[in-house]
């Protein structure tokens, strides 16, 4: 009896679960749909007194208009965002990777103190200290420069922490074999450890790249000059100032997220795996 009831019940809950998932998935996809739709709408239809599921007229000229509009520094800001995201990702991987490995493996008098210092700063997000950081960076004369945008983000406590945790779990026997072969820490790291950790490196790399591409507060504070805008700052400026066509703004937003979404879909497996392997979520 109990078994029969539970079977029927599980079929009912199964259906309920699927309906909930489908509804939730639709809700999560609608914003993407609206973004695409609005990017292909005419300006007057976006401000019309009615809601349209589909553009009454598909306006493809928004795309060409976007790059032809001298008021929107689209190409330049995409380039800036790309440069910043790539350098920061490479920088974080190299610096935090080495630091994490050093903390995990190299016995050193202060290593515990250093590790605790890093862990303590984990809890204090960089965004909160943006005012003193701005004062520091402006003293260096780095306002509105790529240096000012990139260098403060090159070292990340969280990435260092995660790398250390990951390398602690790296099989020591392999490394010991490498030492016997005459490789030092440096050689072991690059020739043995890194090639065997590519999945994890990809996960941290993707997360860093996305974070850097989507960063807002710091580029807003530092990028005072139109030439140093990232794509997020360009979008935000035109969103809050309302000085360009709304349809072009949507097109700009679409252009700004498409490369990221593609990369994300492609690399998602690594992120998920990385999260599972590091135990960012505990253990």
């Amino acid at each position: 009896m109990a078994i029969v009831r539970s079977k029927r019940q599980s079929r009912v809950t199964g259906w309920a679960r699927y309906s909930a998932l489908v509804v939730a998935a639709l809700l999560f996809l609608i914003p993407f749909y609206l973004l695409i739709r609005s990017a292909f709408m005419r300006e007057q239809d976006l401000g019309s007194p009615d809601f349209h599921w589909l553009p009454p007229v598909w306006e493809t000229s928004n795309l060409t208009g976007l790059f032809d509009n001298p008021a929107i520094p689209m190409a330049r800001s995409l380039l800036n965002s790309g440069l910043i995201a790539v350098t920061q990702t490479v920088g974080v991987l190299v610096i935090s990777g080495l630091a994490g490995y050093g903390l995990a493996r190299i016995p050193y008098r202060w290593s515990n103190a250093v590790f605790y210092t890093i862990t303590a700063t984990l809890l204090i997000p960089a965004a909160v200290t943006f005012v003193p950081s701005f004062v520091l960076v402006s003293t260096l004369g780095w306002i509105s420069t790529l240096r000012g945008l990139i260098i403060p983000g090159l070292f990340q406590a969280l990435a260092t922490f995660l790398f250390r945790q990951f390398f602690l779990g790296f099989p020591k026997e392999i490394e010991e074999a490498a030492f016997i072969d005459g490789l030092g820490y440096w050689g072991t790291f690059w020739k043995i450890v890194v090639p065997n950790s590519m999945g994890f490196v990809a996960a941290i790399g993707t997360i860093t790249f996305i974070g850097s591409w989507n960063a807002f507060l710091w580029p807003l504070v530092i990028g005072r000059d139109q030439e140093s805008w990232t794509v997020q700052i360009a979008l935000s400026t035109f969103l809050t100032a309302q000085s360009v066509q709304v349809s072009q703004l949507f097109m700009a937003a679409l252009v700004a997220i498409v490369p990221l979404l593609l990369m994300f879909l492609f690399l998602q497996r690594w992120i998920v795996e990385g999260v599972e392997r590091t135990g960012i979520a505990g253990d």
Binding site: P31, L34, L35, S38, I210, W213, N214, F216, Q232, L235, S236, L239, L249, F250, A253, A256, I257, L260, L261, M263, F264
Partner: peptide
């Protein structure tokens, strides 16, 4: 997660 706060704010 891949979307920025700016793009979400716009939408």
């Amino acid at each position: 997660t891949a979307c920025s706060y700016v793009v979400a704010s716009l939408i």
